[in-house]
Nucleic acid binder design. Sequence first.
DNA 1: TAGATTTTGTGACGTTTTTCACAAGTGGCG
DNA 2: CGCCACTTGTGAAAAACGTCACAAAATCTA
Lengths: 211, 211
Amino acid sequence: MSRRIPASTIRRLSHYLRSLEDIEGEGRETVSSEELADRGQTTAAQVRKDLSHFGSFGKRGLGYRVEELRGRLRQILGVDRVWRVALIGAGRIGSALFEYPAFELRGYECVAIVDADPEKIGATWGALRIRPPEEIESLIDTLGIELVILAVPAQAAQQITDRAVHAGIKGILNFAPIRLKVPAHLAVEDVNLVMQLEALSFAITQRGSGD
Amino acid sequence: MSRRIPASTIRRLSHYLRSLEDIEGEGRETVSSEELADRGQTTAAQVRKDLSHFGSFGKRGLGYRVEELRGRLRQILGVDRVWRVALIGAGRIGSALFEYPAFELRGYECVAIVDADPEKIGATWGALRIRPPEEIESLIDTLGIELVILAVPAQAAQQITDRAVHAGIKGILNFAPIRLKVPAHLAVEDVNLVMQLEALSFAITQRGSGD
DNA sequence: TAGATTTTGTGACGTTTTTCACAAGTGGCG
DNA sequence: CGCCACTTGTGAAAAACGTCACAAAATCTA
């Protein structure tokens, strides 16, 4: 039951939640830390330590009740409710994300789409009409939007961010390959595919020359 | 000059490389660890420590020669050459990635596209014709493909992976929300947007209730 | 050349994160 | 009921990672 939680713990909790959904789908009622460990790439002790940051949810000798632990994790991760999201940038990436079923399934509901291209403004995606950037503040305000998915070119990203921050946004999933300047308290997650590809080429190159 | 390199170091090296490109674009010839630190979110000591894993590239009193360090980092990260990549999955995500200019700019060349949908097979994207999954092995073999970008539904991912592994692929950038089973030596990077969104909702939720 | 100034590379140190090991619960069974 | 098999929760140990501080270059100036 501690205060400061490692980012790696949070990533693993996400994974445990996914595993629990699978296990529930298989009709199982309980699960041990060891099985959760096997499904993520971690150890039973790590699973227990991760969970112990937030309380004690298991029964000795028995394990965890799948449904209960799943509920607890959803609470901990803040996904026991719907998050209202704005998609900013209706290009290729934005389009792919908009169609990505996992988001809505997991409680992230896109309630606004914004793009700067006059050709796109006014077009409809699903039930939504694409809005111009000038409306970002009012959209965030009137629709109660808390998260922004930022899928715009690098040079536009900071300016859009400033507007969203000004309107009181709470978190940003950033696809632009720059480091956004935001107030210290604000949550930003960067998606950086080039970095991940470079991690691959490093691993492969290293392996060849190293051992 | 050590052996085991932390993953966080690799991520930072990617960032340094990006910064060096910017700095080179500004016409500068040298840069200090302090300036590189300011451009990433790290410290001068961390920059020097990261680099020291691979050798000593700077000059005391002067800093690092931008062009040289950039070359060294490209070497270290294995991006001083072209990587031949297959895109497997020609859906929304695949399409967005295929159009994403950063990949080719950074030396990742898509030389094959595969999809299982009979409607898509035979269609052309740019200069490439979409191939059926049966051809994965021969494509990897004949085209000298080392990396796969896997953008297929979860239930197809493992099977495709097995074929690619069998054909001698070296690394996988995985967009499917499952943990792929691969031989121990094989490099896999998972792109998991739901996990990143959950990191955001955790951070926001936590902040509200915590301090 | 000597001294002032800058900045690296790195050992020592401190913090964070993971792993280990085991006491303490829990249910099942004879 | 008493014992056995199982599994959690958690301090303590170990490992990994990051920070600090400074000697050792290197340049510049006069």
